[in-house]
Each structure stands twice: as C-alpha cells, then as structure tokens.
Computed example of a mutant assay.
Amino acid sequence: MTELTGSPAPDQAAPEAAVPRRGRIRPAAVALPALGLLIAVAIWWLVTSGLHLVHPASLPPPQVVWSALTRTSDVLLPALGATTLMTLLGFLLSSVVGVLIGLALAASRRAERMFAPLLVAINAVPKIAFGPLLVVAVGWGEKPILTMVFLLCFFPIVLSTATGLTTTPVDLAELARSLNASRWQSFRKVRFPAALPQIFVGLKVAMPLAAIGAVIGEFYSDKPGLGYQILQYNGVGDTATAWAAIVLIALMSILLYAALTLVERLTLPWVKATTSAR
C-alpha cells in the first residue's frame, strides 16, 4: 500500500514567493487596530463629554474611567488575572470536549441525527438562566465559572469541527482513496488537516464567548474576578470603576483573540499561501 506523506513532492513544492514569511509583523497590523481604538475612544468622549448625550452616571467619560482604573488598579488588576485564568481554562476545556464531540458527530451519521437536536436545544437556552441553578448544582468557587464558559463555548466548536470533517475537498478524498489509504491514514493526513481552518473559525468564535461566560459565572461565584467587581462597584454606585472593569474585559478579549489568531497563522501557514487574498 502506498504510504501517504505529509509533504508535497519536490517538483510540486510551492514557490518560495508564495510561502508566507513568519515572524514578520506589518506596521498596518498594529497601526490600524490602534487607530480604530482611538476612534472608538473619541466617539465615547464625544457622546459623554462633548455633546453630553449620555448622563455620566450611566456612562462616565473615558477620562473618568481611566482615573477610576488607576485609582483601583490594586483591585482590578488581580481580578483581571483571575478572570483571564478562568477564561483560558474554560476555553481549553470546551475546545477539547467540543472537538471530541465534533469528531463523534462527523464519524457517525446516526450519532449526529441522535444528538444534534439536543445540542441545538442546549445552545438555544439563555445561559444567564443557568446561573442560579449552577450554584445549587455545583456549588461556589470555580466550578460555576468553568461550567458557564463551557456552555457558551462548546457549540460553535462542535459545529465547526463536524462541518470541517464532513466537507473534505473531493480531490483530496479521491487522492486518499487512489493511494489505498486506510481510514486512519485518510483522517490523519487528509480529513483532519483539511478541517483545521474550519475548526479555528469555531475557536475564534468561541474565544470572546469564553470571556462572556467567565464574567457571567463570576456573577454567581465568590471568586473576586472582574465580573464580581462589576457587581460590587455598581452596587455602591461607583459606575466609573465598574466601567473600568468592563474596559479591562474588552482589552483582555482582544488580546486573547489576537493570540489565537497568531497561533492559527503559525500552525496553518499553508492556508494563506493557498487561498485568495482579500
């Protein structure tokens, strides 16, 4: 039996110019997001301080939020670390379980027909409704936070994994069959690599949801993360500090998403070289 190999033949190697360069960061990749952030802050200042369209008690101006952030940094920064840790742990848990469930659904049409409606039903329920029930079911601490992150994240990962594994390009599938590849060889060399771009789509959808799930879980936990701090400061009328915590959540989500995008580019360099540019 002819063995499938993971690298192309020498005469079929991609041209050197088509291979993306690693470790090279274009100035626009940093300048454009920074410009977008600057525009967002300018609009925020305009509607709060410039035109006074929003009452400061509801949405404080950015300079007030910045002052609150610097004043309470000894509280908010450790809370940021706790929320980031819960976000990453919950995301990793949902990624592993979600990919495994997606593999099972892709491997068996009967399993897909049996469990897909149940997964859709679980995903359709507003997760905020599970909050009080999680405290009763799993107790206080980290468990309700991780459970909330998992409930929000796992469905897009399952869907993207199952979709990627069941939409293998026909030419690649025919190539594996023509080489008499076994089912395991076909999966390892063809189907799973071809599904990775789609799987990363699900992971990138799930990453911001993980931050949302961690914050919602902290609403019903005794862990002093950013969600817990939002409730505490909002309860005493300190909306500026509550908004400072929200800003930290947004920045954390941006950085985690950018890190995941970087992992995708380093893991799948061939995707950019074999797809059309926008």
Rank of each mutant, 00 (worst) to 15 (best):
P197E: 05
V190F: 02
A210M: 05
A210T: 04
L226C: 11
G202E: 01
E218F: 11
Y220V: 12
K204Y: 00
I212T: 13
I246D: 07
V215M: 11
P224G: 09
W184Y: 10
I216V: 14
V205M: 15
D238P: 03
R183A: 15
I246Y: 09
I199Y: 00
L203Y: 00
A195P: 01
G225F: 06
L196H: 01
A210V: 04
K223D: 04
S186I: 02
I230W: 08
N234W: 08
Q232Y: 15
Q198L: 13
V201D: 03
A245D: 05
G237A: 11
A244R: 05
Q232L: 14
G227A: 11
V247K: 13
D222I: 07
K189S: 13
A242V: 00
A211W: 06
V236P: 05
Q185Y: 08
Q229E: 13
I230L: 11
G217P: 02
P224R: 11
A211N: 06
L248H: 06
R183M: 06
S182I: 08
E218Q: 12
A210I: 03
A206N: 00
V215E: 03
I230V: 14
A245P: 04
P224L: 09
G235H: 08
L209S: 09
Q229M: 15
K223I: 12
G202T: 02
A214K: 02
V236D: 07
F219V: 09
E218H: 09
Q229W: 10
L203W: 00
W243S: 08
K204H: 02
I246V: 15
Q198K: 08
G225W: 04
F219R: 10
A194P: 01
G235N: 08
S186E: 13
G217L: 06
I246K: 10
Y220F: 15
A211V: 14
G217V: 06
L203T: 01
E218M: 09
G202R: 01
G202P: 01
A244S: 14
T241D: 05
Q229H: 12
M207Q: 03
A195S: 11
S221P: 05
Q198D: 09
A214C: 05
P224E: 07
V215I: 14
A214T: 05
A240C: 11
P193C: 05
A210N: 07
L231D: 06
F187R: 02
M207V: 04
K204V: 00
P193Q: 05
R183Q: 12
